[in-house]
Amino acid sequence: MPENMIDSLKSLEQIEFEEGRSLWNDAWVRLKRNRLAMFGLWVMLFLVSISLLTPWFAPYGYEIQDLELGASGPSLAHWLGTDTLGRDLLTRLMYGGRVSLLVGFAATAVSLAVGVIWGIVAGYMGGSVDAVMMRIVDILYALPFMIFVILLMVVFGQSFLLLFLAIGLVEWLTMARIVRGQVQALRRQEFVSAAIVTGLSSAQIMRRHILPNIMGPVIVYVTLTIPAVMLFEAFLSFLGLGVQPPQSSWGVLIATGVETMEEYPWLLIFPGLALSITLFALNFLGDGLRDALDPRSASGAGGVHE
């Protein structure tokens, strides 16, 4: 390794230390310049604040029925119509959003944290550590998940914490595999070897050099995972985990809306729209974040090899 390269690496470290805050500032500046990403951010903020304020804003109670009215299309009294038990869909969508967003973000956060750490360590350490860690992932993939969930419910009872756990348990596996694949490729690159030569510890290298370089696929996968988790929650409520009626979630509303899509299309369209808007906003935001955090596009940082 040429002398000057090590020097430049050291200076790079200094830059990071000295300008740690300005790096984030830079990213934020870049993100702000991305109109689509900002749009996504505002939409997400809007959805989250609606969810927080729902109990004060909701036009009706989510459980209040009007059996005689039954399913009715959008009207002045019920902007988005009512479901088969005559409950206001807008209200149920708002309350459902609380559940779905909470589950989506919390469970994804669990899977993100576990999956990324697991993947980086396995991919970076390689050898037998990698083998053991990845075989554990294989085992968890293969276990019959439904039986597992049913058992967990017997032991711990029905709770939201268990819901996050059950979803996180599944979702981190693919995340770990993707991250590991990326890390394996990165590890062979010169700048990592260079970092090793400078005497940085493995943990430092993983955090400072590996993590920033895998953000792209990770962010994309996270933005895919959030809606997938929201839909997955609908499956878990089939097993009795997840929201209990008369509460609802977007996933459950969509799953039940499918069955009546010919008769009462609004029961599918509006929850579907809510999920789509979330997904699009998240993806715009995710792409913007990816670009903003890209170490190579940051002035001076990264990309010293060649």
Binding site: M134, D138, Y141, A142, P144, R188
Partner: peptide, 29 residues
């Protein structure tokens, strides 16, 4: 379940081989 685990084991071997084939750098070590 046994079938599924065999499948997972085999597929992951294939995938890892594919990864090496696609990224010659992985071959070095």
């Amino acid at each position: 379940t046994i079938l599924l685990s065999c499948l997972i084991v085999i597929l992951n071997i294939v995938v890892d081989i594919l990864a090496v084939w696609m990224n010659p750098r992985l071959r070095k070590v």
